[in-house]
Simulated scan of single mutants.
Amino acid sequence: MQVDFYQLGGTPAEQVIASLAGKLLAQGQRLLVVAEDEALLSRLDRMLWDQGPASFLPHGIAGGTDDARQPILLSTSEDAPNQARNMLIADGVWRDAALSYDRSFFLFDAPTLEGARLAWKLLAGREGVERRYWAQNEGRWSQQA
């Protein structure tokens, strides 16, 4: 299982999430986006709808009747009724449930940096877990570790 740590800088979380989600959808994969903050999920919902017809990302907020059909599901829970094998933690709060997915994305910023460092250390040497750390350099993502 792979965990990708993304340190947010100047790019808003919603943009990074939309980019990652778009890449996963292009590969025919599903995604569960998790955050405790329902306001963040609402902002992300609006952004994904407002991408325009050429870049619309099909998605839904968990709790609807079509959760199982959603390629991208936004939720406050770590459960994936859409059968996603990819989880994205959008609020910078590590959840061990991420380890039950094939691949997880962990987004964090300056206020959640210490928690991200702790999660990085706790996953070090853990059998079956591959960690990657990404940061932005001149607007482009590059793998740092």
Rank of each mutant, 00 (worst) to 15 (best):
F106V: 13
S42N: 13
S42Q: 15
S55E: 08
Q51S: 03
S77E: 14
R30P: 08
A84P: 04
Q27V: 00
I89D: 00
N137P: 00
T76P: 01
D50I: 03
A135F: 02
V16I: 10
W120S: 06
K23R: 15
A18W: 02
R140V: 11
T112C: 08
A110G: 04
R46T: 13
Q70D: 11
Q27C: 03
A13E: 02
G63H: 05
R117D: 04
G9D: 04
G28P: 09
A21D: 03
N137H: 14
A119V: 09
L57P: 07
S19M: 12
A119E: 05
A145N: 12
A39Y: 06
G128F: 09
E138W: 00
A80E: 10
V93K: 09
R69H: 06
L107F: 03
D67S: 02
L57T: 07
S42C: 11
D109P: 02
G63E: 11
D91F: 10
A84Y: 06
D109F: 00
Q83R: 14
N137D: 10
H59C: 03
Q27D: 14
A90W: 05
L48M: 13
L20V: 12
A39T: 15
Y101I: 11
Q70A: 12
L99M: 11
S142G: 09
V129C: 10
